[in-house]
Simulated assay, not measured.
Amino acid sequence: MPSWLIFAILSAVFAALTAIFAKAGLKDINSDLAMAIRTVIILFIAWGIVFFRGYTSQLSSLTKNNWIFLILSAIATGLSWIFYFRALQVGKVAAVSAIDKGSIVLTVLLAFIFLKEPITLRTVIAITLIASGMLVMALK
């Protein structure tokens, strides 16, 4: 099994746990506060990994492009988390998670537009099934 597939499966498992743990942790607190607490913990974990593996020396080799796109990615991640936590606080986990996974469809389309990644018939079928499943899960 290729390593990317193992990492992707682990990502899916932890994303599922994220939704369950977040919903439980949002009880009787503001979603923005919960997201901020989560972010601080992630900050320590991420920098801990960077220091432990000795990647800090690579900071000086980052280009302007690296910085621009990493900053844009961080802003998008932050906004995603803010809205995700707010949705989890007031909605059902299954519906919120299903709609959140709609990002797959958007990612494929944006990758086609901006990164020139091909869209095949297989891809069209897959994103159609994902979008359909998302709607079935989210709508009553």
Rank of each mutant, 00 (worst) to 15 (best):
L79D: 03
A138I: 01
P2M: 09
W4Y: 12
G54D: 00
T56N: 08
N65T: 15
F44A: 10
K27H: 11
L115I: 07
V96R: 09
F7E: 02
I29V: 10
L5Q: 02
L110N: 06
S80G: 13
N66K: 06
F52E: 08
I125C: 10
A95P: 03
P2T: 07
P2V: 04
N66Q: 05
F83I: 06
F69R: 01
V13C: 06
L17P: 08
A36W: 04
A138W: 05
R86L: 10
L10W: 01
Q89V: 04
L72K: 05
V124K: 15
F52N: 10
G48H: 00
T128L: 13
L110W: 07
A87C: 03
L59R: 00
F51T: 10
K101H: 07
S31V: 02
S132F: 15
S103K: 12
L115E: 07
S60E: 13
N30E: 14
R86W: 11
A74L: 09
I104F: 11
L88P: 01
I125A: 13
S103L: 12
V136S: 05
V136Q: 03
M134S: 08
L110S: 07
F7M: 09
I75V: 09
I127E: 08
V96A: 13
L17F: 15
D28K: 10
L88G: 02
S61P: 02
G25T: 07
M137R: 04
M134Y: 01
A24N: 14
I99T: 14
A126D: 05
M1G: 14
F44Q: 00
L70K: 08
D100I: 03
M1I: 12
S97F: 12
I104L: 13
V136Y: 11
A131E: 09
S132N: 12
L88K: 00
L5D: 01
G91E: 00
I127C: 08
A36S: 11
V40R: 02
L59K: 02
A131Q: 10
T39G: 04
M134G: 02
S132T: 15
P2D: 12
A34H: 01
G78Q: 04
W47Q: 09
A131F: 15
V13T: 03
L5H: 03
I9F: 15
R86C: 06
L72W: 04
I104Q: 07
A95D: 11
S31D: 04
A34R: 01
S31K: 00
T39C: 03
K116R: 14
N65C: 08
L109A: 14
F85Y: 14
I113Q: 10
I29G: 01
A24S: 14
I45S: 02
G102I: 05
I42N: 08
S80T: 14
A111T: 04
T128D: 09
F52R: 11
K23H: 02
I37K: 05
R122G: 13
R86I: 12
W4E: 11
A24G: 12
T18R: 09
I71G: 03
I41G: 00
E117D: 14
I42S: 11
I99Y: 08
L10Y: 01
I125D: 07
L115Y: 09
I82F: 13
S61D: 13
D100Y: 10
A126F: 05
I125Q: 07
V40D: 00
A94F: 03
M35A: 15
L5G: 07
